[in-house]
Amino acid sequence: MRARLNGAPAKATSGLMNMQDTSDADTADDPERALLHRYVQGDAAAARLLTVQLTPRIFGHAFRILGNAAEAEDVTQDALMRLWKIAPDWRDGEAKVTTWLYRVTANLCTDRLRKRGRGVPLEDIAEPADPAESAEARLQRTAREDALQAALDTLPERQRQAVVLRHIDGLANPEIATILDVGVEAVESLTARGKRALAKLLGARRDALGYDDDKT
């Protein structure tokens, strides 16, 4: 079953894109859809709740792909605006709201990566403040986050997107296949190759990142 959705920016410039529906269970388990209905009916609380629920996920994904907070914010804002615009025409039984939004975000990130080319310096990852964390532990955590982000940035964009969606955003392969518009086997291949490359890069820095100090 194929569903047709408006509003997602395409890898090319088309205003329409096809999205594969993953399963009926996919549509049943979509709490954001009810909120989107309330949003369309003018419920201000639904607007706030949807924004608060969706923004961290979309921003986090965009940040991991782009490695830059300002660009990730722009992409998040753009993706959410597209959701608000398409909301009155949203059709039940198609893709999940989050799947649609991840796909829009992935394509916006792809557009940005292609525009700027490779080799843009990474921004330091903003650290959530944790008063209980020692200075040494914080430094080590930051070093590991930077190392992961630097390693992710060396991956081809499709591998990077697949790895981030699977192992950081925690999505299932069929949903990732819908987001990236590829088959499930292609997702498995992308994540496997991406993981191998990351393991090689990070494994070489294992000692420097303090992994011998603990059990990992």
Partner: peptide, 11 residues
């Protein structure tokens, strides 16, 4: 695991 536990802070 660490990346999942510490999402990037928003501006």
């Amino acid at each position: 695991e660490q990346a999942r536990a510490t999402p990037p802070q928003m501006p």
